[in-house]
Write a protein that binds this DNA or RNA. Structure first.
Lengths: 193, 193
DNA sequence: GGGCTAAATGTTAGCGGCTAACATTTAGCC
DNA sequence: GGCTAAATGTTAGCCGCTAACATTTAGCCC
C-alpha cells in the first residue's frame, strides 16, 4: 500500500487533510465525468492544490482508487486451511474465511471505488495488476504448504479472479452485503458434486 | 482484433510489409531492453517509419503484443459442454477442448510475446483487460445455457485467469507443449474429489 | 503567542504516449 | 506510364508523470 488510505474519520494533520481532499475530489469527479475524462490537474485544482502535489500522494492517477490492505489476514487464513485439501480449495477457503471475519463499516466507500473501477476498462486491468501483491502472497503460502509453484500460481490467480468478479457484481447492486457476494462468488468455483 | 496480426509467411502489399517490420522491430527491442524502456519512436525508427505511422497500425503501444483471435472457437466449444455440468466446469471444459483442438505451428512467436508480457507488470494488467472480450463471449454463452449473469461472470473470469496463469508458466519453460500447459492449469481448478 | 525546523507545496522544464488536421509521397492496378 | 487511392510525413498539442530546486507553511517547543 502506498499511503494510508483515509482511515481517520476526522483528519488532523495537514497531510491527512489534503489526502482526504484529493480522494473526495477524485471520487466525485470520476463519478461525474468518468475516469478517463477527468484530468489529474482537475482533481488537484478541486482539492486546492497543484498537479505536482497529487503525485506526491499517489504514484499514479489510478492509485487514488486502488488499495488493498487485506493481504496479511488473507494469507493467515489460507495457512489455517486443511492441508489435505488441494491448493485451489485451500485458496478459496482462505478467501472465504478472511472476508467472513472482516468488519464492513467502510463498505460504502469501497462500493464507490469498485463501481468506478468496474465501469472503466483500463482500471479493470490496473485492478488486476494491483492484485499482484496479494497473488504473490497467496502463492507463497500455498507453496509453503506443499504446492508446486505453477499449481499455486494458477490456483491463486483463479481464486482472485473469482473474488474480483464477485466484487464487481456486488458494486453494481444495492441489495447484497459484501460478505454474501463473496460467498456466492466462491460457491461458483468451489464446485462439489 | 485490431489488425490481422502477421499470418502471411511472405508479406506482399506494403501495408503488410511495414506491419511485419514494426512487429519484428518491436519484439526484438522489447526482448533486448525491456518493454517500458523501449520507446515507440525507437520501434518506428528501427522499422524505417515515423512514430505517427506506428499508431496507424496499433491503437496503443501494448497492442503490438496483445491479440487473441481465439474467441469463436472457444465459445463454440463451451456450447458443446454437457448442460448438466455447473457453469464453472462448462467453461473450464470448453477451454480445454478448444485449445486441445488448436494447431500449434505459431507457438514460437506466441511464446516470445507471452514471455514479454509475463515479465512486464503493466502488460499483465493490459493482458487481463484485453481478455475482456473473450470473457464477455464466454459469459454470453454460459447465460444462453442457463446460468445467472453473476455466476457466469465469476466462472468466466476464474477460468480465464487460470488459463493465463498457465500461459505464463508455459512461456518461461522450454520443456512443455502449449497444450500440456493448458491441461495442467485446468487440472488445478477442476478439482474432483 | 512567537519562533524555529521540518514538512508540505510550488515552479519550471521536459519526456513519452497518443491524437488531430493537413500536406505529401508512393504503391500498385489499368 | 499514368492515375488514384493508399500510405506516410509534418506540426502542434494534450495528458500522465518525473526531477531539481526554491518557497512557504504547519505545528511543536518554549
Amino acid at each position: 500500500m502506498t499511503d494510508a488510505q483515509r482511515l481517520d474519520p476526522e483528519p488532523t494533520t495537514k497531510r491527512e487533510r489534503t489526502l482526504a481532499a484529493l480522494i473526495d475530489a477524485g471520487l466525485e469527479l470520476f463519478e461525474l465525468h468518468g475516469y478517463e475524462q477527468t484530468t489529474v490537474a482537475q482533481i488537484a485544482r478541486a482539492a486546492g492544490v497543484t498537479e505536482m502535489t497529487f503525485f506526491r500522494y499517489f504514484p499514479a492517477k489510478e492509485h487514488l482508487l486502488l488499495d488493498d490492505p487485506y493481504d496479511p489476514v488473507l494469507i493467515e487464513a489460507i495457512g489455517r486451511q486443511a492441508r489435505t485439501d488441494p491448493p485451489f480449495l485451500r485458496a478459496a477457503g482462505g478467501v472465504r474465511a478472511a472476508w467472513r471475519a472482516l468488519p464492513e463499516p467502510e463498505t460504502p466507500i469501497i462500493r464507490r471505488r469498485v463501481r468506478i473501477i468496474a465501469r472503466t476498462p483500463s482500471l479493470r486491468g490496473a485492478m488486476w495488476r494491483s492484485t499482484g501483491n496479494t497473488e504473490r502472497a497467496i502463492v507463497e503460502q500455498l507453496v509453503v504448504d506443499g504446492a508446486t509453484l505453477e499449481v499455486a500460481r494458477v490456483a491463486a490467480a483463479s481464486v482472485l479472479a473469482a473474488l474480483v468478479a464477485g466484487l464487481y457484481s456486488w458494486a453494481e447492486r444495492d441489495d447484497l452485503s459484501l460478505a454474501e457476494a463473496i460467498e456466492h462468488a466462491l460457491d461458483v468455483i468451489e464446485v462439489r458434486r
